[in-house]
Design a protein around this nucleic acid. Sequence first.
DNA 1: TTGAAAGCGATACCAT
DNA 2: ATGGTATCGCTTTCAA
Lengths: 332, 332
Amino acid sequence: MRATVKDVARRAGVSPKTVSNVMNGIVPVSEPTRLRVEQAMQELDYVPNLSARGLRNGRSGVIGLALPNLGTPFSAELAQSVVEVAHAQGWSVQIEETGSDPQREQELMTRARANLIDGLILNPVVLDESAVRVGVALPPVVLLGEVSQELADRVFVDSFAAARDMTLALARPGRRRIAVLGINQGRKSATAIQRTQGYETALHSLGIPLDESLMIACDEWTPGSAAESVLRYLDTNPLPEALFCFTDSMALGALNALWRRGVRVPEDIAVAGFDDVADGRFAVPSLTTVSFDKRVIASEALRLLTERMADRSHGQRIVSVPYNIEERDSTR
Amino acid sequence: MRATVKDVARRAGVSPKTVSNVMNGIVPVSEPTRLRVEQAMQELDYVPNLSARGLRNGRSGVIGLALPNLGTPFSAELAQSVVEVAHAQGWSVQIEETGSDPQREQELMTRARANLIDGLILNPVVLDESAVRVGVALPPVVLLGEVSQELADRVFVDSFAAARDMTLALARPGRRRIAVLGINQGRKSATAIQRTQGYETALHSLGIPLDESLMIACDEWTPGSAAESVLRYLDTNPLPEALFCFTDSMALGALNALWRRGVRVPEDIAVAGFDDVADGRFAVPSLTTVSFDKRVIASEALRLLTERMADRSHGQRIVSVPYNIEERDSTR
DNA sequence: TTGAAAGCGATACCAT
DNA sequence: ATGGTATCGCTTTCAA
């Protein structure tokens, strides 16, 4: 059988309360008592039961991180940042995959309320507010990305401005036929909408008319899906002067597709991405991208979450994380 | 205040036990009673407290997944598989990063015993048995990779054989100066050792003498570290005919370094990796690699873990996951 | 500073 | 089929 506080207390000749005090180190305990208790814990190989503690305290020390697609390098880098920042603050992290499914997002909110996690960092995909509904008691939640709603705290990179700036950067050397890759056909993601609008705004300010044929659909936001889209596109369309992909993952797929067709980057076409993942920095050629600090996203999200847990009633907080255009070989 | 079973029971005019029966659906409940209970749950917006359930049942429904470096695409793909397989079986997944630190691995074992997770899937790095010690009560653990120890169950890809086969494949077109990238200088990882031995065995069977200068060190197993190693190597060494990188991530860094130096792949040098991550499939040129099914790793690990949880006493189980050499453009 | 006892919320045994 | 009740392990008033 496993040792409990009672066993430790008995062996140390003290009460359970004292054992608890030794563990939590808030209430002072006399030196000899502490030593006896600590020795008893050692001897019994005592490990506290976190379920019991969680039940008693109403907090489990675990937060949830829910992303649409866990398999991407971007998810890996973000999750790593969240885990590291969380760990430094004594939290554990449960990961979940929503598969871009609002229903699944909803489920996760409920699970958060089931007290196995104290709060949730959620990257929702669909713009509508289905997941974060008015009226239902919300657990502490921080949203990642540009979802327009007024109920939960939020950390985001300004996709609209970043996409606009990237488009302007691509146009600077006189390029006018700038294509974008990543428009979703079906359920439009909030991110895709914002980035598309940034792109359109930039073109407008440059006096370049919008050309529908330069807006390439790609539902999956994976390199495979992107490569396929680009190959199909090249079969029936003239080569654009630049290609702005809405994620680095898609950009890597695009680079591969262009290479297969014998199109040179950046001589024949400039290519840019978004997210600044490691594999993009070492792509052939290295990928120009919208860069931002994932660790800042993680630490801000955690900060908002802990603040929200401490005070459930204060107003909505929104944090914008700075970005910058990182020019690399794929555009020069 | 939040509703509990008691509240639901009172409102439905039944006992807490009946509410529990309705939730768990094992003990039969009469139709009218069930309906009353379900309605009461709805009205009170009842959500069960998983900490309480975990305390009572001794199981939390959460498993841990601990990887050395969460930021890599390989980690992302593996974690995705584990989360998806686990979710299909009703488990949640907590992720942890060990940072190749045996001490941290040790801590995680303890946390597993703290009952917030019912079992642990651990990818240890260092070959010695520090993390999995004799005598200490082990929680249910499944090890990932080739750690030689006899205490915990294990799922692995035969790194030795795969590295040998890849080396043979690289040598087939008559290449003899085959370099490897990924030897660790300091703490030698079990994986690195196995792959190095496979490489050496292949050379031996081909009658190619071992050339120390073809064994390139790279501590970090990231594209950045690999690119740096390769650039430095090229400064002072002649170009090998082939380069076998111990992970795809390193291979991507190597491709970038070679490209910067104007070395053509595969014309001037063949490059291969290990892991078959998505970004390798779409590298320029697409990357030859050792491929295996991460979903099989995930489902086998979960199977061993659940079997171990059901019966803590049976003998060690070891599962080998098949691999194959996936030849792509980087070697032909 | 330490002890005794109540209670967090869900479940299962033992009745009925 | 359903109800009453003890219990899981820990923390926390309240007393001493």
